[in-house]
Amino acid sequence: MDNALKAPPAPADPRASDTLARLAAGALLLTGAGRLARAVWEIRLHSAGEPAAGPPDQGGGVNRPLNSLENSYHLVSTVNSVLTLLCAAAFLMWLGRVRDNARALSGRPPKYAGIWVYLGWVVPVVNLWFPRGIVADAYRASAPGVRLPVVVNVWWGLWLAGLLGGVLQEGDTDSVIARAYSGIGSLLAADLAVAGAAVAGALMVRTVTAAQTARLARA
Rank of each mutant, 00 (worst) to 15 (best):
P124F: 12
A189N: 02
P110R: 08
A178R: 13
A90F: 06
V123D: 08
A37M: 13
G96C: 05
A48T: 07
A102D: 07
L66N: 01
V98T: 12
Y139I: 07
A141S: 15
V62R: 14
A193G: 03
V167M: 11
A21M: 08
L69Q: 09
E42A: 06
V146M: 10
A200S: 12
S81T: 15
G59P: 03
V194M: 14
P109K: 05
A102V: 05
I43S: 06
I184S: 07
Y112D: 07
G183W: 06
A180G: 13
L75R: 05
G61P: 13
M204F: 02
G59A: 04
P14S: 08
P131D: 07
G34V: 12
G166C: 07
L119H: 09
A180L: 07
V40C: 07
T213E: 14
A178P: 06
W129Y: 15
L75G: 04
S182C: 07
T19Q: 11
G61S: 10
W156H: 00
D2I: 02
V126P: 12
S77P: 00
P149E: 11
D172S: 10
L20Y: 02
T207L: 07
A193P: 02
S142Y: 04
W94Q: 01
P65Q: 13
S72F: 13
V98Q: 04
A180N: 12
I184K: 09
C87Y: 03
A178I: 05
R147M: 10
A197S: 14
Q169R: 11
T84V: 11
A180W: 12
A7G: 05
L45P: 06
W159Y: 15
A143Q: 08
R44Y: 05
L20R: 13
W155S: 10
A90I: 01
V62C: 05
L128W: 11
R99C: 08
R179H: 12
F91N: 01
N63V: 09
N67I: 09
T31Y: 14
S175P: 03
G61D: 08
S77I: 00
V146P: 00
T78C: 01
W129F: 15
W121D: 11
A180E: 12
Y139H: 14
V62P: 03
G59D: 08
A217F: 04
S77L: 05
A178F: 01
G185I: 06
V176L: 14
T31W: 11
G34W: 09
A10G: 06
R38W: 10
L83K: 02
N127L: 10
D191L: 08
N67F: 01
P11S: 08
V123P: 15
E50S: 02
S72G: 00
S142I: 04
A202W: 00
A200R: 04
A217P: 04
G107H: 13
A4L: 14
R22T: 06
G60S: 02
D2H: 10
A89G: 03
G165R: 13
V122P: 04
L158D: 09
L92A: 02
L75P: 00
R140V: 15
Y118F: 14
A161L: 12
N101Y: 03
E42Q: 14
W156C: 02
A219C: 06
A25E: 03
H74S: 00
